[in-house]
């Protein structure tokens, strides 16, 4: 009940944030742009709409998660609202989980609205519903949960600007780490390979949540890949959230 109360209050706070609506506006513009791009393009227009549309949802969703996730906890400390909140009979981890779920709820609503627009655009163009899109959207949402946890972790240890830079770096590294995987396959066994292997294990692989190409081009994905990505997402999110709670547990609010 306590976590739910904090989550709902966080949701009320988040939906008043102007940044959210600015990003929502650009996301909608980007979705409409995908339709225009399809007109200009040669080839399967539906594929272009779906490819650009899903990429827009993923990018703007990540920006929402980063910008809001890094400021929500900081705002509580900066505005000193945390003083009365933590003087109530709640654990610090309940506060953090409440904030996390509140933001997840906000992102879910935003993603729902954007997905609705996206599906309508695809439907108007192709005249049919692409069921695979829902799987792609579900994994975009799972990625957003992880990014939110990362943004909140950084906001527990640094200022919003630094946290945003760190979280954005996490997002970019996470989507480029496949390059390291390619390197691992080509490098000869030895010290260099071990180092590369350690790096590859440590840094996130956000491409695990990217099923855009497979869905757009109707490629088959084995169910165990979906299962692996789901477990990877949940475990990584739990790990980052636990780290955030451990940092937050011992923090002084001077």
């Amino acid at each position: 009940m306590k976590i739910t109360a904090i989550a709902l209050n966080t949701f009320k706070e988040a939906i008043r944030d102007r940044i959210l609506y600015l990003l929502l506006f650009f996301a909608v513009v980007s979705l409409i742009f995908s339709r225009l791009l399809a007109i200009l393009a040669v080839g399967d227009r539906v594929k272009i709409i779906m490819d650009v549309g899903l990429a827009s949802l993923s990018l703007f969703g990540a920006l929402m998660a980063i910008l809001m996730g890094t400021s929500l906890v900081f705002k509580e400390i900066d505005k000193k609202t945390i003083y009365t909140l933590l003087s109530k009979p709640i654990h610090r981890y309940q506060f953090l989980l409440g904030k996390f779920f509140g933001l997840i709820l906000t992102l879910l609503v935003m993603l729902f609205l954007l997905s609705l627009i996206f599906i309508v655009i695809v439907l108007l163009h192709s005249g049919r519903i692409e069921w695979g899109m829902f799987a792609a959207l579900a994994f975009i949402f799972l990625e957003l949960c992880l990014i939110t946890a990362v943004a909140m972790f950084f906001s527990c240890i640094s200022s919003p600007i630094l946290s945003s830079v760190f979280s954005l770096s996490f997002y970019l590294i996470g989507h480029l780490s496949w390059g390291l995987e390619t390197l691992l396959n080509k490098i000869k066994p030895g010290f260099g390979k071990t180092i590369a292997q350690v790096f590859y294990t440590l840094i996130p692989d956000l491409e695990n949540f990217n099923f855009k190409t497979e869905i757009v081009h109707h490629l088959s994905v084995p169910p165990q890949v979906f299962l692996y990505s789901t477990i990877y997402g949940i475990m990584y999110t739990l790990f980052v959230l636990t780290a955030a709670m451990l940092v937050f547990r011992k923090r002084d609010f001077a």
Partner: peptide
């Protein structure tokens, strides 16, 4: 506890604010 120069969630109304803290209790 009442802090010095209290800062609260300014987007809530007085009764919404008290209801929120009732839930925490």
């Amino acid at each position: 506890f009442l802090p010095e120069n209290p800062y609260f969630y300014d987007y809530l109304t007085a009764s919404e604010f008290l209801r929120f803290y009732c839930q925490l209790h």
